[in-house]
């Protein structure tokens, strides 16, 4: 019995530390004062070679964000509207001016996700996938960074196993060969999203539709440390000067209209 007690004590200590000794909390001062009620999900940038990953990742984002208490814009409708509006290219969207993009939809904030890595790792005994995602939320009203999180994990796809090494070997081979991206994809993306969005001190505070709205300040403190991000890489939505890109697009649009106007504009024709 003594053994069990020791074991329980040790195990609970491990559990407590697993829950409690998270990395230093982020600073939620900016997020809390911005108090976004709605989040716009924009197309995901995919830097990996898994071509389907971007669209598939997109489908996993609305649920955790809505369940956190935010109004999340209709994801497919937004995607289609953006495509019709010449904003189908994720790179362009991420480099565009946040406030102008948010204005198109009336959004309080925008979430940008980038898939930095998505690599299937296959060896004789296991099939896993190495993923690396970057999440960025920016204020739709002034473009400020509100929150950023990086998830870098290896997910084991061959959980379980029969205990018979030969049977497992075959099973692993089958798993790796027949694996459609989507089946494990959802599991992997959901795990990463949950880590990113829900982790106390690291995720995002509860939104206005949550029962925890404004009462989770202990988990998501306005600590004033200025540590809004834990990312080791720069987001595309940050690398580019957002205004430059949107201005380019604007100017192109203006040029076009000027061109079409100039043919009708007799003054201009005369001066030529």
């Amino acid at each position: 019995m003594n053994n069990i007690k020791k074991f329980v004590a040790l195990f609970s200590a491990i559990i407590l530390s697993a829950c409690a000794t998270a990395p230093e909390s982020k600073d939620f001062t900016t997020f809390i004062s911005a108090d976004p009620h709605s989040i716009l999900i924009v197309p995901v940038i995919n830097h990996s070679e898994e071509v389907e990953a971007a669209d598939l990742f997109l489908t996993t984002l609305p649920v955790p964000l809505s369940e956190k208490g935010y109004y999340v814009f209709p994801t497919n409708m937004v995607k289609k509207i953006m495509e019709e509006d010449g904003l189908g290219d994720p790179l362009l969207v991420h480099s565009a001016d946040t406030t102008r993009l948010a204005d198109l939809f009336g959004a309080d904030s925008i979430i940008y996700v980038e898939i930095l890595e998505w690599t299937n790792k296959y060896n004789v005994l296991s099939a896993g996938v190495q993923v690396h995602f970057l999440y960025t939320i920016k204020d739709g009203h002034d473009g400020k960074l509100l929150w950023q999180d990086e998830q870098n994990l290896i997910v084991d796809k061959s959980q379980g196993g029969s205990g018979n090494i030969f049977a497992d070997l075959i099973a692993t081979a089958i798993v790796a060969a027949s694996d459609s991206l989507s089946s494990d994809y959802t599991y992997v993306a959901n795990s990463a999203n949950a880590n990113a969005i829900y982790a106390p001190g690291q995720g995002i505070p509860a939104g206005p539709y949550s029962a925890l709205y404004k009462s989770d300040t202990k988990q998501f403190p306005a600590s004033g440390t200025g540590r809004i991000s834990d990312a080791s890489v720069l987001a595309t939505s940050y690398q580019a000067d957002p205004n430059v890109n949107m201005k380019d697009k604007e100017e192109k649009g203006d040029e076009k209209s000027e061109e079409s106007n100039s043919s009708e504009d007799s003054d201009q024709n005369n001066s030529n």
Binding site: L58, S66, G69, N76, S182
Partner: peptide, 16 residues
Amino acid sequence: NMYNWGGYSNNLLGYY
């Protein structure tokens, strides 16, 4: 969950 999603993510995935 707060909401009843009715398999939304999977259905959207199927469509994509």
